[in-house]
Amino acid sequence: MSTPSRTAAAAPPAERVEAASTQVTSSDWDEVSALLSEAYFPHTLTPVSPRGVPDLLANCATLGPIRLARMEMGADVTVDSEHPGGYAINVPLSGQFVSVTRGIEVVSTVGQATVCPPDTATSIVEWNRECEILGIRIERQDLDREIARVDESGSRLPLQLDLRTPEGASWIRLVHSLAEQLGNDSGLLHNPLVADQLAGAVTTALVLAATPTIEAPAPRPRIVKRVLDAMHADPGRPWTAGDMAECAGVGIRRLQEGFRTYVGRSPSECLLDIRLERAHADLLHGEPRRTVTDIALRWGFTHTGRFAAAYRARYGRSPSQSLRG
């Protein structure tokens, strides 16, 4: 007997000028899909067992352009969605939550959050009956605009957030506080100006939690930004000082002076940071068959000993320790 799948209709656009909170329950799979689609994202929901009976309990709230949905399924399910138009940040409050995005498996437990990018296929391959999720939906235009404000290099959110860092803990405390106030039907939050301001605070705090070392940069000349953009786009390229200067359209000395003035670091130091960040992500969430050497070479490290030393200095552990988890 095949397991039924439930495809929910597209959710309506998020309201930007009001705050509201509702609680829904259901023990019918079709109704579960419809309710979660309206509260969160359209999706295809599949119960793991054809005999599984849902026991949905969901507390849903809207705060300007942000939606909050605290969800318990009461049964084991899988979910497929492309999260049209918005980011989904799924925070396990209990149990374990496993998803796959761009071929990368992300396993989140309490103290972590899974980020599902907008308009990108994501499969939740494990959402069991013991797992309660706090889902935060943020419209793509709002979060992308805030990312651009904080980090002009054009980086994107990682697929997982650590909520045990000071920045991560601060963000999730703010989310919990707002969810509680919405649940108590706080009249103040129904003021459109207050709702939008608080939603903006949540978005900004999320970006700072995802990129805790980034501060608002001083304006940089075009030559510096051009090289940084190129290094972010292809960090594994065997960059030379001449390559960087050619990319900027200036001499090597002028390029180095520009980096010292506007970034406070040399171009090669910036490239090392970018490569370490990419290698770190691959070690934690990359393909299981890759070795440390494979990952080092992929991101432009031709000397594994120097890579290991730089990685340990940056992250406090060896690459092999990160690869083993």
Results as ranks from 00 to 15, higher is better:
10 A>C: 13
13 P>V: 06
14 A>I: 02
18 E>Q: 12
19 A>Y: 08
20 A>D: 15
21 S>A: 09
24 V>Q: 10
29 W>A: 02
30 D>R: 11
43 H>C: 04
43 H>E: 03
49 S>I: 04
51 R>V: 14
51 R>A: 12
55 D>R: 15
55 D>V: 07
57 L>Q: 11
61 A>G: 00
64 G>K: 01
65 P>C: 06
66 I>S: 09
66 I>N: 14
67 R>W: 12
71 M>C: 05
72 E>F: 02
74 G>F: 05
78 T>I: 13
86 G>K: 07
89 I>T: 03
90 N>E: 15
90 N>Q: 06
90 N>F: 11
99 S>T: 05
101 T>H: 03
101 T>D: 04
102 R>A: 13
103 G>C: 07
103 G>A: 03
104 I>W: 12
105 E>G: 05
110 V>F: 09
113 A>W: 04
114 T>V: 10
114 T>H: 05
122 T>W: 13
122 T>F: 10
125 V>S: 01
126 E>Q: 12
127 W>S: 05
130 E>K: 13
130 E>T: 14
131 C>R: 02
134 L>N: 01
137 R>H: 10
138 I>G: 00
147 I>W: 08
157 L>V: 00
157 L>F: 05
158 P>K: 10
165 T>Q: 02
167 E>P: 15
169 A>M: 02
169 A>S: 08
174 L>I: 12
174 L>F: 14
176 H>P: 01
180 E>A: 07
180 E>L: 12
181 Q>F: 13
181 Q>M: 09
182 L>W: 15
183 G>D: 01
184 N>P: 07
189 L>C: 02
192 P>H: 04
198 L>M: 10
198 L>Q: 14
202 V>D: 12
203 T>R: 01
204 T>K: 10
204 T>C: 15
204 T>I: 11
206 L>F: 12
208 L>T: 11
209 A>P: 03
217 P>H: 11
226 R>I: 09
229 D>I: 12
234 D>G: 07
242 G>Y: 10
243 D>R: 00
245 A>Q: 03
250 V>S: 04
256 Q>L: 06
259 F>G: 01
263 V>W: 03
263 V>K: 04
265 R>G: 00
266 S>E: 14
272 L>S: 11
274 I>C: 12
275 R>A: 00
277 E>M: 13
278 R>Y: 15
283 L>Y: 13
283 L>N: 00
284 L>K: 09
284 L>M: 07
286 G>H: 05
286 G>V: 06
294 D>W: 03
304 T>V: 09
308 A>S: 14
308 A>C: 11
314 R>V: 11
319 P>Y: 03
321 Q>L: 09
322 S>V: 01
